Amino acid sequence: MRVLLTGASGYVGGRLAPRLAAADDAGPAGELRLLARRPGRVEPPAGARVLQGDVVSGEGLEAALDGVEVAYYLVHSMGRGGDDDFAARDRGAAETFARAARTAGVRRVIYLGGLSGGAADASSAHLRSREEVAELLGEHGPPLVHARAAMVIGAGSASFQMLVALVRRLPAMVCPRWVETRTQPIAIDDVTGALAALRDLPDAPGEVQLGGPDALSYREMMERTADAIGRRRPLIVQVPVLTPRLSSLWVQLVTPVEGGLVRPLVDGLREEMLVRVPPPAGVNDDPRDLGAAVRAALDGR
């Protein structure tokens, strides 16, 4: 099978590429292409080819998609480089890629978005944009598999870095109502394993929801993370009013997360991210719990 992975220089894409390149019990992995605007930033696994291209301008897409059966679209803006026009940029990139994939005869596009309620009622502009990208990919491109994931727990995850820093540095914290919002945090290896499985799954559904085994509030997540790293559980006081801007400012002060990423991450904490429809058999069958995911992330996995 010939597969194209966009976003290979990103966190999820960088972890997914080795899984897609690896042979399995069924035989060789096939041909894996990695698309990047700056190929020098990508460390390809053995057997993979890095191609230069740009989903915004369309440069290099025709050659990269030639003969491809399955394409992964892992491109989105998250606050880096200025946010003023991120939604318009993401819309244009999604349409350009979708049309090129359809023209090339790609049979399946797999896209990773957020496990939120939907574009219309999401309070986060970035979550709304992610939903809009999925709609455009489905409208203009080949059949789409929209994988929706809750908070990803892994060594390079900005959300995880923020969570651990809060627990390590603040013995007590004042939090807004989002501290009681529930989510199903999922380990990065479970996310990439599910995405790889969707490559080969016959008759994959249009939407696949991915989460860990437990539905936890962010309060519970911080408490269990403290247990996993051997820290005392923080004292958490909930207050009825604390604006997203103020939340972002104090999170930015005490965490190492890049400033431009903090606001969209904090905005997203207000959205419940729960698996309502289990994924099909063979996709995320046995996800690890939060404690195991945190310990793996702290070990650099």
Results as ranks from 00 to 15, higher is better:
126 H>M: 11
72 Y>P: 05
299 D>Q: 07
202 P>Y: 10
245 R>K: 11
232 R>E: 10
31 E>A: 12
194 A>W: 01
114 G>R: 01
181 T>Y: 05
156 G>M: 06
241 V>F: 09
156 G>Y: 01
255 T>P: 09
110 I>W: 00
298 L>N: 07
268 G>D: 11
230 G>L: 07
117 G>W: 04
115 L>I: 06
246 L>K: 12
140 H>E: 09
89 R>L: 15
81 G>P: 09
184 Q>N: 13
137 L>Y: 05
101 A>W: 02
101 A>L: 07
118 G>E: 08
74 L>H: 03
231 R>V: 07
93 A>P: 05
69 E>Y: 10
252 Q>C: 07
265 L>Q: 01
18 P>I: 06
126 H>E: 10
221 M>H: 06
18 P>F: 06
43 E>G: 11
257 V>I: 13
10 G>F: 04
195 L>V: 14
276 R>Q: 15
163 L>A: 09
128 R>M: 14
38 R>C: 10
39 P>L: 15
207 E>L: 05
280 P>R: 01
166 L>W: 04
216 L>M: 15
289 D>P: 08
18 P>E: 13
76 H>T: 06
87 A>V: 15
155 A>Q: 09
134 A>E: 12
196 A>N: 05
280 P>G: 01
153 I>A: 04
5 L>C: 00
137 L>N: 03
66 D>W: 07
79 G>E: 02
196 A>V: 06
134 A>T: 12
33 R>L: 04
24 D>K: 09
98 A>F: 01
161 Q>W: 04
171 P>H: 06
156 G>N: 12
48 A>C: 12
209 Q>F: 10
53 G>K: 02
7 G>V: 03
229 I>K: 05
291 G>L: 01
280 P>L: 02
259 G>W: 13
31 E>Q: 15
238 Q>P: 07
175 C>T: 12
218 Y>H: 13
77 S>T: 12
194 A>Y: 02
271 E>F: 03
1 M>D: 14
173 M>G: 13
181 T>W: 04
149 A>D: 03
177 R>G: 13
184 Q>S: 13
229 I>N: 06
277 V>T: 15
116 S>Y: 06
70 V>Y: 00
270 R>L: 11
245 R>C: 08
104 A>Y: 08
170 L>R: 08
283 V>D: 02
